[in-house]
Computed example of a mutant assay.
Amino acid sequence: MYDYLLGGKDNLEIDRDMGDRMLSRAPEIKTLAWFTRSFMLKAVEMAAEAGIRQFLDLGSGIPNSPNVHEVAREIEPSARVVYVDYDPVVRAHCDALLAKPRGVTALLGDVRRPLDILDQLKSQRLMDFGEPVAVTLVSVLHYVMDDEHPAEIIAAFRDQLAPGSYLAITHGSSDSAPEILQVLAGTHDTSAQVSFRSAAQTEAFFAGFELLEPGVVPVQQWLRPGLPETRMVMLGGIGRKP
């Protein structure tokens, strides 16, 4: 659905149907998808400008240009990027669309099993955890239910990261308008069910990181002044490991 909302071509009829149903109730979701994407690219740019040369995109989804490696390599051509998703279809798209440029890898992995992902990264020597890494979790954690321990997932990655590493998260806010939350309730008991959380709950995921300004706020506040508010609120935050 995210690919569809961004105007991509790599989506299925069921994705388009669900996307259209959501857009009929909340047309600004399409705008919010672009705000969220722009936040991710800004986070990658900030990390690259800070000297980070390794990027780990967890729950990457189907590639949509510009992507992490394209933005990072505008600043540092040697940047190493690993995309991780649990969907084999996404993995196949990544392999085809990325054409495997050197230093860019797609892994099959479920963020709810962080140790498995870390084992792959280490055994295949895809990341040097002695050096800083920028980790992005864009619109991923609200698909992780409380009983799947999202804070422990973050901690597993955090504990492996060198000082100076970055963590960028976007997360659906429980402060979204009630009519939006009602629309999302239609995903209950499906693979797309969500658990939107408060700003305080989202900020707690940054334990062990120093939050960069402006903190955990609606993603458009990270981009530029004057962007419109949306009834669905997508929070964004970037932290740096001291």
Rank of each mutant, 00 (worst) to 15 (best):
P66E: 10
V140F: 02
E49G: 08
I169H: 07
L118D: 01
A26V: 14
G7P: 10
T136S: 07
R197G: 03
P77G: 07
I238E: 00
A156M: 03
T202Q: 05
S65W: 03
Y166D: 00
V84P: 05
P218S: 06
L5H: 04
P218N: 04
W222Q: 07
S65Q: 06
R16E: 05
S198H: 02
S123W: 03
G237K: 11
L23A: 08
F196Q: 08
I153E: 05
H188R: 14
A155P: 01
R91H: 09
G239N: 02
Q221D: 12
A50R: 08
E28C: 11
D128H: 04
P225Y: 07
S173D: 09
I238L: 10
E70C: 09
Y4C: 02
P63N: 07
E13V: 12
L227M: 04
I29L: 15
Q193N: 10
G226N: 02
A26I: 13
K9T: 14
I238T: 05
Y166S: 02
Y4S: 02
V90D: 13
V68H: 02
V144Y: 00
T187W: 13
S174Y: 00
R224P: 00
V138L: 13
L98K: 06
V216Y: 01
L5R: 02
P66I: 09
G19T: 01
F35M: 07
E213Q: 15
R197M: 02
L23D: 08
T190H: 10
I52T: 02
D3G: 15
A185K: 12
L126Y: 03
I169Y: 03
K9V: 15
P242I: 07
A199L: 06
A177Q: 08
G172K: 05
R158C: 03
V135S: 05
P150K: 08
G226E: 04
E74V: 04
L41F: 00
E45T: 04
G239V: 07
T230V: 09
S195V: 10
L108E: 08
A106M: 15
Y4P: 01
L58G: 11
D57S: 11
A192T: 04
Y86Q: 13
A106S: 13
R125H: 11
P77D: 06
F35P: 03
A48I: 06
Q221S: 12
S198P: 00
P88F: 14
P218H: 11
S173M: 03
F39T: 03
G215I: 03
P218R: 11
L23Q: 06
R240G: 00
L98G: 06
